[in-house]
Design a protein around this nucleic acid. Structure first.
Lengths: 204, 204
DNA sequence: TGTACATCAGTGAACGCGCGTTCACTGATGTAC
DNA sequence: TGTACATCAGTGAACGCGCGTTCACTGATGTAC
């Protein structure tokens, strides 16, 4: 099926195109200022077309967020699988870097994912967001077991905050004199300092 | 001067009221979805009044961001002053906590401060944002000197990311099972793990 | 193989709405003399 | 102390605009027989 022949009436895969277009537009103007009509315009369909697949504005936003968490979950799972056999701290660092990589390369999705003030989460969203969180929790737990620490919460909060914060600062672009370093470089260094701290001190 | 007597024609200090109202509204609906007319409505003035003091929408946003950086700078300077005499790592932690405290208690300002995609920075903005950054840089440098480390960039990026990330996650409210801990508690633990890592390992 | 018909995808006109900005205005204040 | 006048703060009507949503429609597809 190749609908390349001069704009047929039926699009081919409009839902896919709409998600891609929305991600692009959100990356450019933010998760609030995009409009359904602009998405339709860029996708080359009438402004009423999106309603057929996503209901309304909120539905499209929810779908984009859900897709984002699925992509993040997959990226984290991949990092986990590819680092099998390495020490828990190294695996934890690599998982963090996969988060950072996802955030900087899927800015539209990332900008929307946590914005539950902009859409009402449904069952699918909760499931897939929970799955991503579970991967983080498992890696942190493994690391704590390895080090004999009981403060899993601190490890989860710390590693999440590091990569989430770096991602947001890098995306905002107000990173001051740090802009000559890539987020990945900085992320690697900072995460390793953090895991060094975990290895070298007791919870207090 | 007490203009309490039944809504006089002149407001008293409308610019102040407009900034406060905008901060509240932005905290509630985000840095894009607020409207000039809603601000005026809440401030009890006509919708054309804000233009007198801030020119246009962008001007009000810029003023709010600038004020935010001034408040942050003051909070960080206070933390610095109050921790004089303590070891550099402890002082650095306290500076970080002052950032976290500022962010969670001035959500309207914080939501706007780094959004230079929404307004064009002017000289005053650059000065005051630079002043806040300088305080961070000085604290990180002092800590590095104390520990004999050369990677000031990593220390700046790490501590900033930790508190910036925690603040964003806490504000977004999708903090998962971590919600039973306050951002300040978590911030303290995480920052100390980070400084432990700085003390216990060499830059690599 | 052909035809009728149900289903689905996308259209385009219409609606009502809240928005930012402009502009001539009016009310209040303060200063010069 | 009083008066004229300039300046400043806030008003309210008007404008044009892009928006999300609704709705009757039309074009395309696929299935039953």
């Amino acid at each position: 099926v190749t609908p390349k022949d001069d704009r047929p009436y039926h699009h081919g895969d409009l839902p896919r195109t709409l998600l891609d277009t929305t991600a692009e537009l959100v990356a450019a103007v933010g998760p609030s200022s995009w409009s359904l009509r602009e998405v339709a315009r860029r996708a080359g369909v009438s402004h009423a077309a999106p309603a057929h697949h996503f209901g309304d504005r909120e539905g499209l936003l929810r779908a984009l967020s859900t897709e984002g968490f699925a992509l993040l979950r997959d990226a984290m799972a991949r990092a986990d699988a590819e680092s099998e056999g390495l020490p828990p701290d190294e695996r934890h660092v690599r998982q963090g870097l996969s988060y950072l990589d996802f955030a900087t390369h899927h800015r539209g999705h990332f900008a929307v994912m946590f914005r539950t003030d902009l859409f009402t989460p449904d069952a699918e969203w909760s499931e897939v967001a929970g799955a991503a969180y579970t991967l983080l929790l498992e890696s942190a737990t493994r690391l704590c077991d390895h080090l004999g620490r009981g403060d899993v919460d601190d490890v989860v909060a710390g590693s999440w905050a590091i990569v989430h914060g770096l991602a947001n600062l890098a995306i905002a672009g107000n990173f001051g004199p740090l802009e000559h370093r890539t987020p990945e470089e900085l992320g690697g260094s900072v995460l390793r300092i953090f895991t060094d701290g975990l290895a070298g001190s007791q919870p207090r």
